[in-house]
């Protein structure tokens, strides 16, 4: 247990020291590369804004991700259960996923003028639902027929088979996709906040750092984003352990 905490903490310290040393050794000005010792004061100076904007970014990311889970699972179910629907929906989804979301930002901003929260959530959702839909559909369509037969032979309904077997069996794939999606949703939120600034979120703080040539602030935002990203990712890992821990056969040894 101690080892589990100590190893990453020491690694982080070493990384920070190396960074500090590199900036000092190369005599880089802070507009080229801020050092950890510049970033600390930047955090302190704007700590109230970091909490406020960090919260904006966090809740909008989570809202977008939840929307992606609902829509992605629903689409995945449709594609996993019916071959026809899969053939119909798949090309559309692939095409939609291929559109760089940066190009969608101004479109959304024009569509829903002033609805910043909604725009941000929508981008986070759009960028992150695809892996969930694909993994759920693959999980459902690759269910061995015997799994279905053991319950169908007892007269169980399709819904019972789905609830008792298909759904839990797909959970490991679902969480695998969710780990990808949580990072994507986070990118989506920041994309909106930076490309279409509207005075909220860490993306906005980054943008104002840029405008005011406050380079340590920009780096501090990057670090804050990394911390939030780690938090979100490990929240998903925790949920995976709770709901799909059985799939990790190593842990049971």
């Amino acid at each position: 247990m101690l080892r589990k905490i100590a190893v990453p903490v020491i690694a982080l310290l070493v990384f920070t020291l190396l960074w500090e040393w590199l900036v000092w050794f190369k005599q880089w000005p802070n507009y080229k590369m801020a050092s950890p010792s510049d970033i600390g004061p930047a955090f302190w100076k704007y700590k109230a804004l970091f909490f406020e904007y960090g919260w904006d970014t966090l809740w909008r990311t989570v809202a977008g991700l939840l929307l992606a889970v609902v829509v992605g699972v629903f689409l995945g179910m449709l594609m996993g259960i019916s071959r026809t629907l899969r053939d119909a929906l798949y090309p559309i989804l692939v095409g939609f996923n291929a559109i760089p979301k940066a190009t969608v930002v101004p479109v959304l901003a024009l569509m829903f003028v002033g609805q910043h929260d909604m725009n941000t959530i929508l981008i986070a959702f759009m960028i992150s639902f695809f892996p969930i839909a694909v993994s759920v559909s693959i999980g459902l369509s690759t269910l061995e027929p015997e799994y279905r037969d053991i319950l169908r032979a007892l007269g169980a309904s399709r819904l019972t088979v789905f609830w008792k077997i298909a759904l839990p069996k797909t959970l490991p794939e679902f969480f695998g996709a969710l780990k990808v999606s949580v990072t994507l949703a986070f990118i989506g939120t920041n994309l909106m906040e930076i490309v279409e600034p509207h005075g909220r979120g860490l993306g906005h703080l980054f943008d104002s750092g840029k405008i005011n040539a406050d380079y340590p602030l920009m780096f501090a935002v990057l670090i804050a984003l990394a911390i939030l990203g780690i938090l979100l990712y490990y929240a998903v890992v925790y949920l995976e352990k709770v709901f799909a821990g059985w799939a990790d056969t190593q842990a049971t040894d």
């Binding site: 061995e144 015997e146 037969d149 053991i150 032979a153 007892l154 077997i165 839990p168 799909a244 799939a247």
Partner: peptide, 13 residues
Amino acid sequence: VGMAFQNPVLLEW
């Protein structure tokens, strides 16, 4: 009716 197959299809969870 009860059924068993070559693949034991146990529910791992």
